[in-house]
Design a binder for these strands. Structure first.
Length: 111
DNA sequence: GCATTGACTAGGG
DNA sequence: GCCCTAGCCAATG
């Protein structure tokens, strides 16, 4: 497990229920801005139960993918109280979990 | 170490 | 709105 991967997983784990973060954001929080692709790659093989990978979505509030089970991801998000319309999250700007990279790792900051 | 792949992103047609 | 292209990064062979 690379430091970056662990970092990403840690960040995703800090995403509070009912909130979502984009791959780019997670990458930035993990200390590697622009590594959105890498983040997705890591998620692909890390369907950990401890990590709410379903809260990680694509930019613009799009669902992105979920190991080929996008419907499942949609259901999980809906279960979190979010509303999904097509491939987009409703009130995306509201539930977008934003936090500082320095703050994200080492301190859970909910809103 | 190089080449390929992929849950990405932004821009253009 | 969708499809394609270029840039990006980490993991894998």
């Amino acid at each position: 497990m690379s430091p970056f991967s662990a970092r990403v997983l840690a960040v995703v784990r800090r995403i509070p229920p009912g909130r979502v973060a984009t791959y780019g954001d997670v990458a930035a929080m993990a200390g590697r801005p622009g590594a959105s692709r890498a983040v997705g790659n890591i998620m692909r093989g890390c369907l950990h139960a401890d990590v709410p990978c379903h809260r990680v979505i694509a930019a613009g509030g799009r669902l992105g993918g979920y190991a080929g089970n996008v419907p499942l991801k949609r259901a999980l998000l809906a279960a979190e109280g979010l509303t999904v319309v097509g491939r987009r999250i409703r009130h995306w700007e509201r539930i977008h979990w934003k936090t500082r990279a320095s703050n994200a790792v080492g301190r859970a900051n909910n809103r």
